[in-house]
Design a protein around this nucleic acid. Structure first.
Lengths: 244, 244
DNA sequence: CGTTTTCTTGAGGTAGGTCAAGCGCTGTGG
DNA sequence: CCACAGCGCTTGACCTACCTCAAGAAAACG
């Protein structure tokens, strides 16, 4: 195998947590079908869909969203390269939310049929995939804490910290800099704020010298202060070694 | 087996979704250890714990919570009889949150060792247990939408609708009435509101005739109106048949 | 280079927070 | 049987974080 298969970021993420055997690597590599490009702004999955495959993000940024009857939109998770956006659809067939590309993405399907066969033949890999969805839930809980208990600045700081660490873990960011192709409207839909207020808070963090954000590119100038403001503790991301 | 084993509510919940064989029922029934009583207000699990078992709720009400450095508390899920409160600790060893009894509870442990063996021997049961954690995540997402997009009255209405349907599905409630042993402070910690504001909103719903709430006992007088106010759509609870 | 999208800033409004006090249970001990 | 302590509920007065509406500036894009 001369070129790195698309699944590599996932295997690396898993290998940081536990030992993955060559056979398991092979099984994972065989899961993915033909890649597909999705333009920024397009939906990868619509709410209510019943896909017969789960979508894996090879590269790009996308987000899970729910639309409300009153015209609102809540983003419930940001997904980056190496994430499945709807692994849970293997078990919960009908999508309770949609997934939208925030930037141009490359994605690949993993047929539910193949995933189900994998759960029959590879219990350890099954647990590792299960862990992926468990970490999703932990991130959801952390966002609940942010929305329920933190003010706007604190929420924004927390989000930046989380995204940086996840991107760094995926080898997509380093040196406290990363590309973040989201508009302030998107950000508001994550944080439960209006675009106007996101802007004001962002301007404030810039003035305080905590971060720069220009042309979709973020630089964290003072990680300590940002993490303190966001009350950020990375334990919930489960990035350390701990075999399942 | 003359008396119903403690695991019955879980098996019933699963059987509503998929066929559970007698062998699988047996395997589930063998999971649970000796029951334990937990008094209202006591923690079942502390944040940061690394339990070697997952806790199953036989009866009672408990809630997952996160404390913030500023003295706040966010409840991220309500668990009732038939739920595991920390099934995910099988995979994510260190608890990212705690669990507290809201009312007196009876709980039973399922050793991680036994759960792990179950994942080796029963792929279908494994998928059903995985589904339990996936539904937890779907509930988290719904709460994110509530906290991010809905106002106080709407959030409260949504919570009541969700709790009633989950209790009804577990055979613990019927006829739009149920016991809800939570204080208004607890409710505020779920909804991201102060106790004072919870009270005002609650008084309002009572005045509008949508529900009664006396001595920990809730009666929904107008389900349609309450569901409309809460923008409640039960699909995310995944209560219907849909084999995994 | 014109059009559209995104960002920025101001002025004024409101949902929900804070602080404070009184009320009504329920349980407990004299 | 009563006193009273403790907890949870209720209400009022005032405050503030964030929202709404609006308009211009600056990027991004074809």
């Amino acid at each position: 195998m001369s070129q790195a298969p698309m699944i590599t970021p996932l295997i690396e993420k898993m290998a940081r947590r536990d030992v993955i055997t060559p056979i398991e690597r092979e099984a994972l590599a065989n899961l993915l079908g033909a890649t597909r490009r999705v333009a920024a702004g397009k939906a990868l999955v619509e709410p209510g869909d019943r896909p017969n495959f789960s979508t894996f993000v090879v590269s790009g940024f996308c987000a899970r969203f729910t639309l409300t009857p009153t015209g609102g939109r809540q983003l419930t998770q940001i997904n980056i390269g190496g994430d499945f956006v709807d692994l849970h659809s293997l078990l919960m067939r009908q999508m309770d939310h949609g997934v939208v590309a925030l930037a141009d993405c490359v994605v690949a399907p993993a047929a539910h049929e193949d995933l189900r066969r994998l759960t029959q033949q590879h219990p350890h890999l099954t647990r590792l995939l299960w862990l992926e969805t468990v970490v999703d839930a932990a991130i959801h809980r952390q966002w609940l804490v942010a929305l329920g208990q933190q003010n706007a600045a604190s929420r924004l700081a927390h989000l930046i910290c989380e995204l940086y660490l996840r991107l760094e873990a995926g080898g997509i960011a380093s040196d406290l800099r990363f590309s973040l192709p989201m508009t302030q409207v998107d950000l508001g839909d994550v944080l439960g704020l209006t675009q106007v207020h996101v802007n004001r808070v962002l301007m404030d963090l810039r003035r305080q010298g905590l971060l720069d954000w220009k042309a979709g590119h973020v630089t964290v100038n003072d990680w300590e202060a940002l993490a303190r403001l966001g009350q950020f503790d990375p334990a919930y991301l489960r990035l350390q070694n701990d075999p399942v």
